[in-house]
Amino acid sequence: MKTLKLIYFNTVFYTLFLSFSMFSIPILSLSVIFLGLFSSHRNTMKRFRRAINWYGNVVIRVLPFPFVRFRYKDYARNKGRGPYIFVCNHRSSSDPFLIGCLPYELIQIVNTWPFRLPVLGIFARWAGYLNVKRMQFKEFSCKTIELLRQGVSIVAFPEGTRSRNKKIGQFHSSIFRVALQAQCPIVPICISGNENIPPRGSLLLHPGIIKMHKLTGLEWEQYKDLGPFKLKNKVRDIIASELAAMEGGHERFISLS
């Protein structure tokens, strides 16, 4: 019975996913291109990145429903307009889609594999997603700071790769060095429940509940005296602590002070 349910869910999801993608990607692209004829390159990019967010949002929240339910909580005390550096834990290839629920113009820092995805990889490149494996730190830093200066928020998965279990991996310090230079707020994002949606090395989605918590950001004034090593571990501890609370069955508010 469980296997049948799994087959049914995946058949329905992937049929909807392909149909929706074939329909929405050309329409969204043409709309952005058409509106781009009457507006600046900057506004066109803004619209393009928002369209990607909207697409990701539908793919992960609407198409797999009711087999997969998504619960998003925003714990931020002050809801500014950004830009921010969002730092997320990384357990599943569905993480980049989940990020679509953040109401900001954003780009993601990714590995090489998302750029190899058919169609989506091309859009990631056009949107200005940064391939951290393909650039030296100096180039990465310059490009990221320029995007932040334009008002574009950055999403980073500093574990670098999807964790093989629920344990959070060591963080890479690149994005924290950029945050220190750019004096940009760092917002921790905790994602739980999508370890099997889909599991590492598979495309098979399993039913479940995905929780995503956006925590209060660390302002530059709060972290400016920390070195990158201490800063990355502080943010890692905040995320690990929230994940433990989310997965321990009780939710709690984390103080960042």
């Binding site: 060591q170 963080f171 890479h172 310090s173 690149s174 060095r177 070195g227 990158p228 090593f229 571990n233």
Partner: peptide, 12 residues
């Protein structure tokens, strides 16, 4: 793996 340094931390 145990102490959590990365390539940039090694430069420091």
């Amino acid at each position: 793996e145990d102490l959590g340094l990365d390539s940039l931390d090694v430069v420091d």
